[in-house]
Design a protein around this nucleic acid. Structure first.
Lengths: 165, 165
DNA sequence: TATGGAATGTTATACTATAACAATTCTTTC
DNA sequence: GAAAGAATTGTTATAGTATAACATTCCATA
């Protein structure tokens, strides 16, 4: 497995090109492995989703896509999103109706998200202690977990430091 | 404080009239205390939200409302929902775009929800162990929690027992 | 190089939520 | 009890999110 993620909140200035590259490389490998097709359009949309460490809505994505000269309609975007979601390459942030690249694609995981209410950056966790606690609480009630949505909003470390009125 | 909740998943057949009554009584007391007005329309919508232990969407609510002879438009419903949300009398289930009565109104709490994917019943938890784990994980990363969305979907105890194909 | 399935294009529409302004009701104060 | 101001409700229109349905194109494989 790769290096440990230094922090789920990367510094404001970091080599983001490397983030994009890694995401696309991983996605290609995963699709090859799973026997599914990361078509140019799907790849383009995945790349757009990785433009920033922020979730982006489907229609904002559509607008970005159009700026690149592609004249697409909503189903184009939603189909790509469906594909990427179903292969674990992106996540949907329910509380924002938005989508964001998955930082640990390829491995089945449930995921938790920290969303900064100020800068909108999102950090994906895969904190087993949280998973275990949710499992324990559910089990106690006889509930069988199939899927979970854990989205925490608040101030990220960067925004906490720089004046949070 | 009141009696401990027997189980967040009430038996299929229970005195649901008592659930509704209690919810409305508590809501009245809370509004009296907070100096806000639980108008007939707001009360009616709260009551409709308590018809079942299932979340209900705004437009389904609107339809129910119309069946009672009230000729309302969407803003009527959304305003009532906003009021009820802002006074902690109901919750919004993000993953369903739906709303459900709060089982512990009046006390500030963050809440976690178990949503049955089969019967759609929802159970509200206020499990401090989960809250503490989320706090601990967030704190470790320097993230300051403002709000949380924890929605677990899966099979409730009743549906687990009765054949889950 | 035919063919069947996957992917994409296209149009229309469903579902969720709010903006903006008018009308009404409630409460407070005189 | 009447006037003023605030809160609530009515009404119309529209913004924002997502999918249905069907036509067309692409592509792997035989």
């Amino acid at each position: 497995m790769g290096m440990p993620m230094p922090s789920p909140f990367p510094p404001k200035r970091h080599d983001h090109h490397a983030c994009i590259d890694e995401a696309l490389t991983q996605a290609k490998a995963i699709c090859l492995d799973q026997g599914c097709r990361l078509t140019p359009q799907r790849e383009q949309i995945l790349e757009l989703l990785w433009q920033e460490h922020k979730p982006i809505g489907a229609y904002a994505l559509l607008e970005q896509l159009r700026k690149t000269g592609v004249n697409a309609a909503p189903p184009t975007v939603y189909r790509a999103l469906d594909f990427l979601l179903s292969h674990g390459l992106i996540h949907r942030i329910e509380s924002l109706n938005a989508y964001t690249g998955c930082t640990t694609p390829g491995t089945p995981h449930r995921g938790q998200f920290l969303v900064c209410s100020q800068c909108q950056h999102v950090a994906e966790l895969d904190d087993s202690a949280i998973d275990h606690q949710l499992d324990a609480s559910a089990r106690k009630l006889g509930f069988m977990i199939e899927h979970q949505t854990v989205e925490i909003s608040g101030l990220c470390p960067h925004c906490r430091k720089s004046g949070h009125e």
